[in-house]
Design a protein around this nucleic acid. Structure first.
Lengths: 178, 178
DNA sequence: AAAAAGTGTTTGACACATCAAACACTTGTA
DNA sequence: TACAAGTGTTTGATGTGTCAAACACTTTTT
């Protein structure tokens, strides 16, 4: 009953995560270094906002600054960003390759979700994707079948999510799971 | 590059969602009616905060007020809450029954994620759970196998998420998917 | 009936994330 | 070289979500 308020993983807010991510992406061309202006453009916010947001990140040792005011991720921040990207990739693949969302929708959803899922969930999701994509033909075949499946449910659909296409209320437990 | 800022589904913020959810839960014993104090206790915030948060929800016609200052969800809000609960349940089941998280962790994660996933992702996730839990023995057996699977990866593990237990970078595409 | 406890609201404050506008400084162009 | 353009910061503002404290009102207890 108290957990719902805690919103940031590693003390990284959604906004901060995107600032670090932007530095990572922009820095690829310049040995990790990026400019405030480019970060702002990349995120679609003003230079002033970026300047302010970067303040706490510098203080926390996540962002380093040049004498030419170029900014760069600290090793610690780089690790955090790697984790974020790994989580996001696993999510994105699950959403597109298993659930069958368009790549665009999968990308949007995974961006929003990535920084909220627990490390354990991320780990298991990665393993799930390995499991599904791995050598086992049964797993691959099953995903193929699900991609065809549209879950047309013969019952009196009143599921709020799928609006008549399914009936969540009668969703059976996975036997022996949970 | 612009979507990352938009954060609320249906214009319902995370906070507003929880206020509505609290009214729904507390109202079960009193024909849908709840008190500000109880909502505050339930959410672990002050009465003042609830009072203020309820203001916009009243104006938007999502929350109705009694002459005794009891509050209740409007039909529209009830529908929204039903959707949220359905999404959350599908997520929670996926996390616990498929990925094998503890029920507690599954609950926490689904609470955080629920209001961010797109309708399409929610719909497909519900269908996925139906598919998995449905009559097909192959699907059920596969989930059982995954629950055993811990994804011990023989490669030089440098995956930031699973820290050596897997290698996300070499995660294969699901053939024919995406 | 009086005192105590509880309830809902309002106020002033803070943190976060954003903006526009002004400022000082650097870079690029004419 | 001078002027224009671009860059990074600062300031004052807004909106959201929270707090503590004060206030008025109602309910319960004594």
């Amino acid at each position: 009953m108290e957990t719902w308020k805690k919103f940031d993983a590693d003390g990284l807010t959604h906004s901060a995560t995107h600032h670090l991510l932007a530095i990572e992406e922009l820095g690829r061309q310049y040995g990790g270094w990026a400019r405030v202006s480019d970060i702002a453009r990349h995120l679609g916010i003003t230079r002033g906002s970026v300047s302010i947001s970067l303040g706490p990140l510098k203080e926390r040792g996540l962002v380093e600054v040049d004498e030419h005011r170029m900014v760069k991720l600290s090793p610690q921040a780089q690790t955090m960003v790697d984790e974020v990207l790994a989580k996001r990739e696993a999510l994105e693949r699950f959403l597109s390759q298993v659930l069958g969302l368009t790549p665009e929708q999968a990308s949007v959803d995974s961006c929003k979700i990535e920084h909220l899922i627990s490390p354990r969930a991320a780990e298991r999701l990665v393993q799930f994707m390995k499991f599904i994509a791995g050598g086992d033909p049964a797993a691959r075949e099953l995903v193929q079948r699900f991609r065809q499946y549209e879950g047309d449910c013969p019952t009196d659909g009143n599921c709020a999510v799928c609006q008549g296409k399914c009936l969540l209320a009668r969703l059976a437990e996975v036997p022996g799971a949970g």
